[in-house]
Design a protein around this nucleic acid. Structure first.
Length: 504
RNA sequence: GGGAUGCUAGCUCAAUGGUAGAGCUGCGGACUUUUAAUCCGUAGGUUCGGGGUUCGAGCCCCCGGCGUCCCA
């Protein structure tokens, strides 16, 4: 450990309140009281005390002694009797009481002069209720558990959004909804793991640093290995490695982990985001759609005790039962009033796009135009209802197998909930010859300037050539699932989302 | 990418182009049953950064930074 003090210069610039807290820290040390003790004789949690004494009468002495710690969030000091509300990390609270009679004059004076809002303190004493009936610990002794050198935000006004996200720890301290959001994520992701494991799935971890990125169309983050003198990519999807695992005989695998895409962020996109992908040998996309619905319903059940989801704004969304299916081409045809098929000429698609103000990118293939038209015309008609959109164009889905009965389409669905894409599922393309052709087409697109086109991954193709069982696969955006469950933006579902530095 | 809008005390916010204020927090004092304790007193500012207009800029103009909302 290095001890380098730059204090004298810094101290001159500190805001008064921070300087005062530093002074208190130093006073504690000067009085032989460690402001950051290494261990405390804790015998109970705040939650356990509340659980043990759920409804005591007013002004009761239990005779039970406990030692517990918490963060001071309110203080009410009177002359010879002091009150403080202590809060634990789980949000549970209990009142600490310090009386002159019990702790003595020196300890009481130290309490009043050295404890600030935000400090962690340890209190040892008897569990009682006050004359107003508040469950309390009447201290025999108190100890500083950790001196806070910065003031907390005011408890009675909402912090601004920027501070809440940049300093999520403060958000978690101050706002029950922030703690609840974190807990909701834990519950939902835990349930997904249990649901998949209950169906015989195994969780594995595949590379985040990849020598070739694949499995999706997106721009990657690029980095370098110094030791290997090698350009590496942060993965945009785990798909190609999970499929290698299926080739290797892991017939039901899933991974919950981070993907990275070098794009902007908005209320539904983050440059790094959590993705669940799962693959099941001998399943097709319809079977995977059913499993996807069950996973989301079971996650909702775990969080809310119901498949009717209640957002934080109070609105309810029913996720129970079967979910609607619409055909991509069919629903688009209906919306534009003419039959659109994979055989519709590009010139007609471009006309339709222009007629609604869509600018057709120079690298767009026909399927891309169809998908954009679909998003423009159809998604708003879903009314937020969970909807599987079935059967996509071939040329935008290079990893999906041809439709078993409809030319020009692949067996792929997208799931929309509340108007945004929540999940996607395939009957996976396992024919290595066709897969090579598809990736060759992607390479051609790349050569024409499409920076998102997939690369030709020879090692992946070699794995396929060893024979991958017919399989279904699904990707579910975990952050978006949390958005579906809570109604919040993606930056609320991610505990520490990427934010630009405050000073350039 | 385009448009709108915001950045002021530790926090949340005020302030016709004319002396930068309030509440909470802090500090000093009173109080042995408080619950956002109360009461008395008091301190606290590079108004995001840079440039310009003006007798005078938190406010108007330009450039930059960091957000938020809407649109594509």
């Amino acid at each position: 450990m290095t001890i380098v003090s730059t204090e004298p210069d810094e101290e001159l610039e500190l805001p008064e309140q921070m300087q005062i807290r530093r002074d208190k820290r130093n006073k504690l040390a000067a009085q032989g009281l460690d402001p950051y003790p290494v261990a405390l004789p804790i015998t109970a949690t705040i939650a356990s005390v509340r659980l043990q004494f759920p409804d005591l009468e007013i002004d009761v002495q239990t005779g039970i002694k406990v030692g517990l710690a918490g963060r001071v969030i309110f203080v009410r000091n009177t002359g010879k009797l002091c009150f403080a509300t202590l809060r634990a990390g789980d949000g549970t609270e209990i009142q600490g009481m310090l009386s002159l009679a019990k702790v003595g004059e020196e300890a009481l004076d130290q309490w009043k002069s050295l404890v600030d809002l935000g400090d962690h303190v340890f209190i040892a004493g008897e569990v009682i209720t006050s004359k107003r009936g508040e469950l309390s610990v009447l201290a025999d002794t108190w100890t500083m558990a950790s001196k806070s050198l910065r003031p907390l935000p005011v408890a009675h006004k909402p912090m601004n959004d920027d501070s809440r996200i940049r300093q999520r720890y403060l958000d978690l301290i101050m706002r029950p909804e922030a703690r609840q959001m974190a807990q909701t994520r834990i519950t939902a992701v835990g349930q997904i793991r249990r649901s998949l494991e209950a169906r015989g799935y195994q969780e594995i971890e595949t590379p985040m640093l990849q020598t070739m990125h694949g499995g999706a169309t997106a721009r990657p983050f690029i980095t370098t290995s110094n030791a290997f003198d090698l350009q590496l990519f942060l993965r945009i999807a785990p798909e190609l490695f999970l499929k290698r695992a299926v080739v290797g005989g892991m017939e039901r695998v899933f991974e919950i982990n981070r993907n990275f895409r070098n794009e902007g962020s908005d209320s539904t996109h983050s440059p790094e985001f959590a993705m669940l992908e799962f693959y099941q040998a001998y399943a097709d996309y319809r079977e995977m759609a059913k499993l996807t619905r069950e996973l989301i319903q079971e996650a909702a059940q775990a969080v809310f005790g119901s498949q009717v989801v209640t957002h934080m704004d109070g609105t309810e969304h029913d996720l129970s039962g079967e979910w609607r299916e619409v055909s991509l081409y069919g629903s688009l045809s209906e919306a534009v009033g003419e039959e659109i098929t994979p055989q519709t000429p590009r010139t007609r698609l471009v006309e339709l796009a222009k007629s609604v103000g869509l600018e057709v990118g120079t690298t767009w293939v026909e399927g891309k135009i169809v998908e954009e038209l679909f998003e423009h015309h159809v998604i708003s008609t879903f009314d937020g209802q969970p909807t599987f959109v079935m059967d996509f164009p071939i040329d935008t889905s290079p990893l999906t197998r041809d439709h078993r009965s409809e030319a020009g389409k692949v067996e792929k669905w997208d799931l929309y909930i509340n108007g945004y894409e929540q999940a996607t599922g395939y009957s996976e393309l396992v024919d290595p010859v066709v897969q090579r052709e598809r990736l060759m087409e992607q390479s051609a697109l790349g050569a024409r300037g499409d920076v998102e086109a997939m690369k030709l991954d020879e090692d992946f193709l070699r794995a396929l050539e060893h024979g991958m069982p017919p399989s279904g696969g699904v990707g579910i955006g975990v952050d978006r699932l949390l958005m579906t469950l809570t109604g919040l933006g993606i930056r609320e579902t991610i505990l520490f989302p990427l934010v630009k530095p405050e000073r350039a």
